[in-house]
Design a protein around this nucleic acid. Sequence first.
DNA 1: GAAGAATTTTACCGTCTGGTCAGCGAGGCT
DNA 2: AGCCTCGCTGACCAGACGGTAAAATTCTTC
Lengths: 202, 202
Amino acid sequence: MTRPRTRIQRRNRETILEAALEVFSAQGFRGATLDQIAEVAGLSKPNLLYYFPSKEAIHAALLGDLLDIWLQPLREMDPEGEPLAEILTYVRRKLQMSRDMPRESRLFANEVLQGAPRMGAAITGDLAALVETKAAVIRGWIAAGRLADVHPKHLIFSIWALTQHYADFDVQVRGVLGPAEPDPYPEAERHLERLFTRMLAV
Amino acid sequence: MTRPRTRIQRRNRETILEAALEVFSAQGFRGATLDQIAEVAGLSKPNLLYYFPSKEAIHAALLGDLLDIWLQPLREMDPEGEPLAEILTYVRRKLQMSRDMPRESRLFANEVLQGAPRMGAAITGDLAALVETKAAVIRGWIAAGRLADVHPKHLIFSIWALTQHYADFDVQVRGVLGPAEPDPYPEAERHLERLFTRMLAV
DNA sequence: GAAGAATTTTACCGTCTGGTCAGCGAGGCT
DNA sequence: AGCCTCGCTGACCAGACGGTAAAATTCTTC
């Protein structure tokens, strides 16, 4: 199972995944075509299928890598830290991910929007378990009077919704703000900091 | 331009749009096929194309109806009302729409996610203008000291993100909450009320 | 109930899509 | 140099796709 043997394998697999991310995130799984991915990658379609057995497999490889990266900031929320600071750090890191990895955010959003047909297990499994763990931490903080009383899981949903919105609905955000405000993120960060501080401070 | 002349025309156009909403919202534009829509509608594919000139036209008809419905609650936000109550009402109505019209929410999300290729004009036009108007109202409330100081447009983004999240990421929300909590909405409403109250109260 | 219009179906077309296959070429090893 | 594996290509296929044409059916109106 040692996948990428040679240098050329590693390079081309990476090129393909990069192109596939570009196309899948913009079109969804069914909307994307192997020809599009091949063109973006600068490779021929049969060559794609030399490295991956099918369109499905390319998509699966992307999603497999993604969930780990995506949940890393939540994993790093420290039960020993100062509650509000921990949550604000999480919010900031998640917002940074929206800015720096919007395609990954959209890939994920596309998948979940369409009912997570290729990811259902990961959501009810790893994801649900991690959230359960962190919700318990938050519950502890609240019980200790170090954080305002909120529903822990809905708090996490709120963080996801608010931060990912800036990646997933980018065109809408920019369309509404107009050309005078070319980068929504600095203002978004101030706004979200204020929102969560006021919501959670005791 | 009086479209639906006979009863049968009106009924079949409606059947088709209902089926198209089902399919487009679950698959996106490119992912949906006329055969799928025809099957859901219980009509033959050529019969679909008797009522609508093309796949594009069906999609356009859906989106055209949608934006009006979608923005109605924001339009109804009353500049003469009590600021916090007006905003909480808006949040509640928007959350109700997520619960009662999740397919419409997902149709919209799919479109925007993929760069709003068939809706760009409406976003930078009508939508941006309406938000500008309402942002001015909010700015007035803040200046009068009747609402906490927040960025008006990012406040509106927050309302959209938080409420639509429950429709667009439904499988994720339910997957994380688990089967013990079959209806996320009552808790979501309490959570969002608390969030916006704490955020906005002076 | 016949005429004529509105609706629906059958059969079909050209294009696109995911995927296959036989072979060609390039690299590395002895 | 010769061999052999790895990497790559062009031609192709079967099915799905959006859409069309014309005939068949149903509905309305007199």
